[in-house]
């Protein structure tokens, strides 16, 4: 019972905080650009607005288009459950490990890419093709990172490295590689741009172009959560601070606040990258991800050498 309570709490935490994180990054970005910018709560307003709008469905769309938002939403939340947030071991950790998480994200992406093709719009096809291209190149880089982490901590279970003690070169390099991967996965500059609807550049936005109203809200929600999951992973790899074992809820919350500080640091880094770097051509993304891959290899070598 305790476990289910904790899991529900974790879900609620991810759902309520994830949009804030996205709003925060946008705010930081705007402030760096010397703009006032929108409120940090803007993503919430957007979600509420989308929820209260009626939905337009394309005449050519089938049940794939209708079901994809739910698959995306549930797969992202499932991945979020695997992350230890309040306690040392996520209560759901027997469900899967870090590798399983990669496959779970792939499930949502698969359906979203299909839904994009479903409406028969060439924008959707474009987005779908590009997304699958990028994600298939993300996969090796991500796998290399996980390999490095597994070499260092002796397991791919997420709780083993949230429980490790020392900060090592290997984990910092691995976290850096994971950061690059997360940029690609959360469709940020230089891989994708969340802010434009320009057919030459859009990837994620092209896939969800035909969505409106509540389904769009679900998809947006899922991408906020996905971003947060990646940031949590980075935070845990680079600052492996012991989380308390569960039972003590009060202590759990104090650790959660420590977490927040780390997450905010990562968000600032993400915002800085978005402001400082220009969007890359699609085919240059391969080079970008190769760089992440090479960082992963370096992390592996460091782990083998033992630094």
């Amino acid at each position: 019972m305790n476990k289910i309570l904790l899991l529900t709490l974790q879900l609620a935490f991810f759902i309520t905080v994830a949009p804030l994180l996205s709003g925060l990054i946008t705010k930081i970005k705007n402030n760096i650009r010397m703009r006032e910018g929108q409120s940090v709560f803007q993503p919430y307003y957007n979600l509420v607005k989308l929820f209260s709008k009626s939905e337009v469905i394309s005449g050519t769309a089938s049940w794939i288009f209708r079901s994809a938002p739910f698959v995306v939403f549930s797969s992202t939340l499932t991945a979020a459950l695997l992350i230890p947030v309040f306690i040392f071991t996520s209560p759901a950790h027997t469900m899967g490990d870090l590798l399983a998480m990669v496959f779970i994200f792939a499930l949502g992406r698969f359906f979203l890419a299909l839904a994009a093709l479903d409406t028969g719009s060439s924008f959707g096809g474009m987005g779908s093709s590009r997304e699958m291209f990028i994600s298939s190149l993300v996969e090796p880089a991500l796998c290399m990172v996980i390999f490095a982490v597994s070499l260092q901590f002796g397991s791919t279970d997420i709780s083993t490295f949230s429980g490790a003690h020392a900060i090592s070169v290997s984990s910092i390099v691995a976290a850096l590689a994971l950061f690059l991967v997360s940029i690609a996965e959360t469709s940020r500059i230089p891989v994708d741009n969340q802010e434009t609807h320009l057919e030459l550049t859009m990837v994620h936005e092209a896939m969800v172009l035909e969505y409106s109203g509540r389904p769009l809200a679900l998809i947006e929600m899922a991408s906020y959560i996905k971003q947060m999951v990646f940031f949590f992973l980075i935070a845990q790899i680079v600052f492996p601070i012991c989380l308390p074992s569960y039972e003590n809820l009060a202590q759990a919350f104090s650790w959660a606040s420590w977490y927040c500080v780390r997450i905010i640091l990562i968000s600032i880094a993400a915002a800085l990258v978005e402001v400082a770097v220009a969007k890359m051509r699609l085919l240059r993304v391969a080079d970008f991800l190769e760089f992440a891959f090479v960082l992963g290899v370096i992390a592996c070598v460091c782990a083998i050498v033992g630094v």
Binding site: S52, K53, S54, E55, V56, I57, S58, G59, T60, T119, G120, S121, F123, L209, E210, G213, R214
Partner: peptide, 9 residues
């Protein structure tokens, strides 16, 4: 909410 069927954009 009412969902509307319409042509693809």
């Amino acid at each position: 909410k009412r969902s509307v069927r319409h042509n693809t954009w």
